[in-house]
């Protein structure tokens, strides 16, 4: 009946039994660890040009092969993960930090002018896909990784605001919120004490999904030149550079793509698994 009937200990046990959470969690963790390790160590330096070793296929010396400058692809992927994760993570953070309070506020004063303004504002932002925001920013300020963060971050705000508002609205009609009002508590206090904890699970699941969408969007923006610029390695740029040589050295194009797929797949599996875990109604239905 109540979504929180599962205590945290039970939740951990259930998580360890869920293949989606396990596989997804391990994939996501692996990418994060690779990105973190690249801060102190990579198999090869990524700024060294070794024309002699260019287009080497995967081997024992270069696990994933080398690119057109002879740079080690495994090292590039590790460093590129850093950019992707940073962009997607900060963009999710922007969405959560700005979107959730807006959604909670709108729900707390449902039907008022403030609610109306917040929701209309959300609709307006929804009319600007992340790519269009990136185009606007780049046209005026020039390209860069910060653009990608701002563009994806702005796009995330209405996602979280709408989700938080919708979930909060259904809680505001619940009798325990009425009991809290009866106890003289104000709307802000109720939002923090009663509403937010009960929508946290939903928000966590959505954050995971927006994280994976952020990785995809970042790759797309970098690919068309609106994201991180050389010499900062990014998966999207690696793909853009590999494209012209795809007939010559397919692995240079395949490797960064696989890195994106595995990261996004891991995050999506984790998100879906967590959703099933948090919602006992769904448990056992999917499998």
């Amino acid at each position: 009946m109540s979504a929180v009937a599962v205590e945290s200990a039970g939740l951990w046990r259930a998580a360890l039994r869920s293949p989606a959470v396990l596989v997804g969690g391990m994939l996501s963790l692996a990418i994060v660890v690779l990105a973190a390790v690249s801060l102190v160590w990579t198999p090869y330096p990524i700024d060294g040009v070794a024309i002699g070793a260019r287009f080497a296929p995967p081997s024992w010396t270069h696990w994933l092969g080398t690119d057109h400058f002879g740079r080690d692809l495994a090292s590039m992927i590790m460093v590129g993960a850093r950019t992707s994760i940073a962009v997607a993570l900060v963009a999710v953070g922007v969405g959560v930090v700005l979107g959730v309070p807006l959604g909670l506020a709108a729900a707390a004063v449902r039907g008022s002018a403030i609610d109306e303004v917040i929701m209309r504002g959300n609709d307006l932002v929804f009319a600007f896909p992340a790519l269009v925001i990136a185009i606007l920013i780049t046209a005026v300020f020039g390209p860069g990784a910060v653009n990608a963060i701002i563009a994806i971050g702005i796009f995330n705000i209405p996602v979280f605001a709408r989700l938080a508002r919708g979930a909060a609205l259904s809680l505001w009609t619940r009798e325990f919120v009425m009991a809290a009002r009866l106890a003289g508590k104000g709307r802000a206090l109720i939002s923090v004490e009663h509403v937010l904890p009960n929508i946290a699970n939903t928000l966590i699941v959505q954050a995971t999904i927006q994280f994976s969408l952020g990785i995809l969007a970042d790759a797309g923006l970098a690919y068309v030149g609106l994201g991180a610029q050389p010499p900062i390695p990014s998966w999207g740029r690696m793909l853009a550079e590999a494209q012209t040589m795809i007939a010559l050295a397919p692995h240079v194009a395949i490797v960064p793509g696989l890195a994106i797929v595995l990261t996004v797949l891991g995050l999506n599996l984790l998100g879906d698994g967590l959703r099933d875990l948090f919602d006992p109604r769904l448990r056992g239905v999917r499998r």
């Binding site: 007939a247 793509g257 994106i260 996004v264």
Partner: peptide
Amino acid sequence: VMGGTQLGIAVPNFWFAMLLVLVFSV
């Protein structure tokens, strides 16, 4: 279907386009 679509969501469409070029054009 669930497995296939899970994979489908994770694939960036521009990379998928490159793979299509590799297979069907090149």
